[in-house]
Amino acid sequence: MTSFALPLPRARTADSAGPVASALDPLVAGAARGDEGAFERLYRAHVGRIYALALRLADDAGHAEQLTQDVFVRAWERLGTFRGESGFGTWLHRLAVNVILTDRRSAWRRTRRITPSGDLIDLEPEARSAPPGIRLDLEQSIAGLPPGARTVFVLHDVEGYEHAEIAAMTGIAVGTSKAQLFRARRLLREALDR
């Protein structure tokens, strides 16, 4: 049987320099001391990765831009808590996931009927529509997934997080995360096979 290489656990391979080197990174240290120039250089080094994440999780490109800006502002505010246990890129990526998911929870609370449920995957807004009958590429198909399935697919298959990590970040059960992943994969295959 042919073997297929699954995506690497990318969230943890982003910082090849490792925690010690990152802790000594003069840019990170400078930014943590309040050097905006150093922080701008960090922004320029990492913005593409954060924007890619936001673009795949947000509802549109404009919202992704706003979320990307929010992530870096939050990072600036919280740099003082960065201790270098993980690489800066890993820390920033996790912060980005939290900022984006928090924004989604707030938005969904406003647009959906209020329920005591804290499970954001249960509160499914409509998926972004994809043109019927048109063969889609993978990015378009991901964009067309229902948000809960899209979130888990992006975090697991694209960004390399484990189900337990996704459950902790999103507030869903591990089993729900797995179910959403299989749902997402089937939907994507159907969309790409059309």
Partner: peptide, 27 residues
């Protein structure tokens, strides 16, 4: 489905520059 998507997903871009410089809205 997992097999169908594995290689395709691995080929997705991880780094996508935003269409505009967002720093002006951050600084």
């Amino acid at each position: 489905a997992a097999r169908f998507l594995a290689d395709r997903t691995a080929g997705l871009r991880r780094d996508i520059p935003p269409p505009a410089d967002l720093w002006a809205g951050i600084a």
